[in-house]
Simulated assay, not measured.
Amino acid sequence: MPRPPEYCDLFTYRKRSVVPENVQELARELGVSFQRKKVSAELVSAFRSALQNLPAESVPRGASEIREIAQMNMAYGHREPIGLGTRFLQALGLNHKNGDTLLQDHPDLGWLLMFHGSGYVRQAAMEALTTSPSCPFEVAAVVYRLNDWVRNVRTASTTYGREFLVTASAEAISESAFFLLPQMNFLSRWDDQALSVLQDSIYRTEVLDEMREQFLAPRRGKVGQSLRLILQRADFDIHLENLALDARLPTVRAIAVETLLMGRARWFVGYRREWVNKVYGITRRVAEFETRNIEIDFEVEEILGAAARDKSSLVRRIAADLLISKREQLTAEMAELSDVLRNDKSSAVRSRIDFLDRTIASA
């Protein structure tokens, strides 16, 4: 994933922060106001507005930084000793039996308190929220609460996500998906219901249309990995032909061409250990992939011809690989494309066509 931008750290001992200076200042001011039980609607609104420009990949590190800046760690930051359970919530103004609570008056305060060091407060924050995430950072923050180490927080987050995450804007979901899709293999605490909430959010038609536009344009990060992961379900298959012909990034064109011509989607799922020498206890790490057959109609000759003439050797190699796999059923058009690739400037492409020629000659 791309590294989030860094800024000067204003309040902690870190040298750099992934949280912009204005967000740091607002988080500190809102955290102090929360402790003093003097929160204003203007300050809550200003803090949430400041989150709009944060990328989704800032959440893992940004959550701990915001918690520390706003003095919401369990170890310090409170002005008086307080107990746990009901007394703890009362001291923070979070007792649900009291109608005049800070979160009831300012539900959007939950966008700060979801990073609190106490699971009681994070749960109350998720239960108080009444609006959908409005930016990639908020989407990713909710997904990380779906994976919270406290079961009650995960339950509250799943209930929230079922109502509000699935209605977030297509732009916010699609942009955060480039970060969240690879993270799904590492977020291990959530259950099938929480995973279903995230998938229902990402695989909405309008979100997939927005992601197609993102894949067509150049962007940084492991875009190819995200494309392979979105292909775990068939919902995105209808966009593959468009990507194979018009995507700006060679990696995206290569994956789309490979998926179409080979008739299967392939994505990384993890690693396994494989024995090299049992006597000496030597193993190696081997990548594991899962596959899914795709069944969509497209012009094979058009895709193959475009791939054989692509300006990237990565894509041309895939065209050569398909010619090898279809060597027993080569059409006149395919034979013509092999002539085009025979003198390719890439040695990797030429060697494949040379193998094709030798195989045909020996048959």
Rank of each mutant, 00 (worst) to 15 (best):
D108C: 03
L109F: 09
W111L: 06
L112F: 03
L113S: 06
L113W: 09
M114H: 13
M114D: 10
M114L: 15
F115Y: 09
H116P: 05
G117T: 04
S118H: 00
V121I: 00
V121Y: 00
V121P: 00
A124W: 04
A125D: 13
M126L: 15
M126H: 09
L129E: 03
L129A: 06
T131Y: 06
S132E: 14
S132M: 08
P133A: 02
S134N: 14
C135R: 02
C135D: 08
P136A: 05
P136L: 04
P136T: 12
E138D: 04
E138R: 05
V139R: 13
V139E: 12
A141Q: 03
N147Q: 11
N147W: 10
W149Q: 04
V150D: 00
R151S: 05
T155L: 14
T155M: 12
T155A: 12
T155K: 11
T155R: 12
A156K: 02
S157G: 12
T158Y: 05
T158E: 12
T159Y: 12
T159W: 10
R162M: 13
E163Y: 09
F164A: 01
L165H: 06
L165M: 06
L165I: 07
T167E: 10
A168F: 03
A168V: 08
S169Y: 09
E171F: 11
A172C: 09
S174T: 07
S176L: 10
S176G: 09
S176Y: 07
A177T: 01
F178Q: 00
F178R: 06
L180Y: 02
L180P: 10
L181K: 08
P182V: 02
P182R: 00
Q183A: 10
